[in-house]
Amino acid sequence: MVVCMSLGSVTVPVREGLEIVFHKLTGTGIPGNIDESLVSILWEIRMPRTFTAFFVGAALSASGVIMQSVLQNPLASSYTMGVSSGATLGVACVIMTGFATSVFGMFTLPVAGFVTGFITVLIVIGISSRIDHNMQNHTIILFGMVFSLFVNAILTLVSSLSSEHIQRLVLWQMGSFSGRRWIHGIIVAICAVIGGILLMFMHRELDIMSFGDEQAMSIGVDIKKSKIILLVLASFLTGAAVCFSGIIGFVDLTVPHMVRRIFGSRHKFVLPMSMILGGAFMSLADMISRTILSPREIPVGAVTALVGAPFFLWVYFNDSKK
């Protein structure tokens, strides 16, 4: 994070950066030998952006751990449950109708994305539990994919009726941390920390569920209740991340795999380390997105995909040789 906050179109020396942070946190005056423009760049632009990127990555990675463990599928993610489709539909409705409210102000778009994405997951979980009382994994994944396609069809219809707003919607879908402020980072951080703490209370259930539903039931785990709680928490984390960053893929897929290879499969270690490495990876991806073609900025989702796709090819072929 220190490196990401220092590098950019204007380089902020680490020593001066640490001095700025110290004086800002303590409320003392900034020394005269430090350029005021560096203070503004670091404290008002880069730090909030990096802070937000870190906790978005942490939330997405923790969500990926839960989805892969609960559904016993290495390719599972909250996006499988329709979070991205639902959030995009909510954002599209706000953009294309011009809806605004004084209650949420600048948070109208993020709130719409979070609420609709979360509602989509609740619908998937609710109908899956009605179709299959035991909520078997293939039922959840299958209905999640079907419902996601259905929501995407509605999104396509809405977009075709208001083509002048498509560019803004596409830019939101690409993912970006441009313009993020401290309030955005603080909200995402609170959601990520709360979600992470709640998940840590269930790390034993996750360890047991990784061996399959039948083994977990034989030990005495309430599979249906545990799945609902874990899926809702994972979707909450994803929704909180997506609403401030747009759709950013591959982080929730690649980071949990890397962590399991390094630290083993015990969720007592996998969960916190996934959040830390996921946050670091997202911060690094954001730095690359804003520096590689500076002063132009590329979508951070493109950076994570360029790294994630080759990684999954390596995982697939490496496992197939064993």
Rank of each mutant, 00 (worst) to 15 (best):
V3T: 11
V3D: 01
C4N: 06
C4I: 00
V10Q: 00
P13W: 03
E16Y: 02
E19F: 04
V21I: 14
K24C: 10
L25V: 11
T26D: 09
T28A: 13
E36S: 10
I41G: 00
W43Q: 09
E44A: 13
I45W: 01
R46P: 04
M47W: 01
R49M: 15
T50C: 08
T52P: 05
A59Y: 07
A62I: 08
S63I: 00
S63E: 07
S63H: 01
M67H: 06
Q68H: 04
L71A: 09
N73C: 13
T88R: 01
L89E: 08
V94R: 01
V94I: 06
T97D: 07
G98L: 05
G98M: 10
F99E: 14
T101R: 05
V103I: 12
F104D: 04
G105Q: 04
P110I: 04
A112V: 07
G113M: 08
T120Y: 12
V121A: 12
L122S: 13
S129N: 15
S129G: 13
R130L: 15
I131K: 11
I131T: 12
D132Y: 03
D132T: 00
L142A: 13
M145C: 10
A153Y: 10
I154S: 13
L155E: 07
L155P: 04
T156D: 08
T156L: 10
L157V: 14
L161T: 09
S162D: 14
S162H: 15
S163N: 03
E164Y: 01
I166E: 08
I166N: 14
Q167I: 07
Q167R: 11
L171S: 14
Q173M: 14
G175A: 06
F177T: 08
F177Q: 05
I183G: 01
I183W: 01
I186V: 13
V188D: 07
A192R: 00
I194E: 07
G196S: 10
M202K: 14
M202P: 01
H203R: 12
R204G: 11
E205L: 02
L206A: 04
D207Y: 05
D207E: 01
I208A: 12
S210I: 05
D213N: 12
E214R: 02
M217C: 02
S218Y: 08
S218L: 08
G220W: 06
G220P: 04
D222Q: 11
I223F: 11
I223N: 11
K224Q: 13
K225H: 12
L230K: 06
L231I: 12
V232L: 05
L237T: 09
T238L: 11
A240C: 10
A241E: 09
V242Y: 03
C243H: 05
S245N: 09
S245G: 08
S245A: 15
S245R: 09
I248V: 15
G249I: 11
V251L: 09
D252R: 09
L253E: 14
M258I: 15
V259T: 11
R261T: 14
I262R: 06
H267Q: 05
K268Y: 15
L271Q: 03
L277H: 05
G278K: 10
G279N: 04
G279P: 10
A280N: 02
A280C: 13
L284F: 12
A285E: 05
M287H: 04
E297V: 15
I298N: 08
P299I: 12
V300T: 04
V303C: 06
G308F: 02
F311P: 02
L313Q: 00
W314Y: 14
F317C: 02
F317Q: 08
S320L: 07
S320F: 10
K321E: 07
K321P: 02
K322V: 12
